[in-house]
């Protein structure tokens, strides 16, 4: 009985756009949904460091190197903000990381694609970050306070990421024929996986119902995907690259682009672990975590000794 009353009060707050804070009562399902979504988001930022990290040592100029490095560093930072937000829901970072490493938690499938050429740094920044930004701008208005605050911070910092990628693409598109070919190839490989980042169509998305009702998600997968496509098509035209979708057409009546059929078999295949890099990404993460274990133990032991000293003194 009391729960029903609490639930009504909770929904009333959500409907009035009052943010939910960590100590507020919340339905268990809401908590679980957030734990899953925020940690998945955090894991994506952290795993997302790897495909771009693949090119730091080979960045073709010192400027390109510092820019890429700063960008990947931001991603680590964003992972950190998001783990912090997820921790306010009563689970430790250790637990979340264990869920990632034991494959109980997912991360965005886009990071299971390899970065094969330098142009991929352009494509990742322009398309992958571009898609992520559309989603994150929307999530700034999410109902959970810590998540929303993390998103505000992240959006502020991300503003240079997409520009960095687009700059690489634009530069290569007007470079040597080889460079232009590399840029087009990167666009060809990353276009479809990028628009899959928004997840299945609304009709096939089981979690959307509650997430929208609780205002965790403010816009649906298809709405966000459409926004991304509409703003990206023109950007490709400006730099003379072709989006690899023959069905892409401006629809005057709807005021947006129609696009071709998404290959959902590929999407689910990668989600299930069969992408080109799923195993590699996870292995890398586990290895780094294991290699750091003695360091973390040492730091904890040192801190314990310092505390003891303070007590004695």
């Amino acid at each position: 009985m009391e729960d029903i009353k609490k639930l009504e009060e909770f929904q009333a707050k959500i409907d009035a756009d009052v943010k939910i804070e960590p100590k507020d009562w919340m339905p268990e399902e809401y908590r679980k949904h957030l734990q899953r979504q925020i940690s998945q988001h955090a894991h994506s930022e952290v795993i997302g460091m790897q495909p771009e990290g693949n090119w730091i040592s080979r960045a073709p100029s010192l400027r390109a190197k510092v820019v890429l490095l700063a960008k990947i560093q931001d991603e680590a930072g964003h992972g950190q903000y998001l783990y912090s937000a997820a921790e306010t829901l009563g689970k430790s970072r250790d637990e979340y990381i264990e869920e990632l490493q034991t494959e109980k938690a997912k991360y965005s499938s886009i990071f299971n694609y390899p970065t094969l050429t330098w142009a991929d740094m352009g494509a990742v920044g322009w398309l992958v970050d571009g898609a992520a930004i559309v989603n994150q701008v929307s999530l700034q208005r999410t109902s959970y306070g810590p998540y929303s605050r993390a998103m505000v911070r992240i959006c502020k910092e991300e503003s240079f990421h997409q520009r960095q990628g687009y700059e690489i693409m634009a530069h290569m598109a007007k470079g040597t024929p080889e460079q232009k070919a590399m840029a087009q190839d990167a666009l060809n490989r990353f276009w479809w996986p990028s628009i899959m980042m928004f997840g299945p169509h609304d009709a096939d998305s089981p979690n959307t119902g509650n997430a929208v009702k609780w205002r965790i998600k403010r816009e649906t997968n298809d709405e966000l995907r459409q926004k991304f496509i509409d703003k990206t098509v023109g950007q490709a035209e400006v730099i003379g690259l072709t989006i690899p979708d023959p069905d892409l057409k401006w629809n005057e009546a709807k005021g947006c682009y129609d696009y071709g059929k998404i290959n959902w078999d590929e999407f689910w295949n990668v989600v299930k672990g069969n992408g080109p890099c799923n195993k590699q990404r996870l292995k890398h993460h586990i290895k780094a975590h294991k290699n750091g274990e003695w360091v973390r133990k040492a730091a904890l032991a040192y801190a314990a000794k310092q505390k003891e000293k303070q007590l004695v003194a």
Partner: peptide
């Protein structure tokens, strides 16, 4: 910069990247 994504703690990863930069 080779440490990027290999740090023992997430915060330390960021610190090492700062030093690289």
């Amino acid at each position: 910069s080779e440490w990027c994504s290999n740090g023992p703690i997430l915060e330390e990863d960021i610190a090492m990247t700062n030093i690289a930069l």
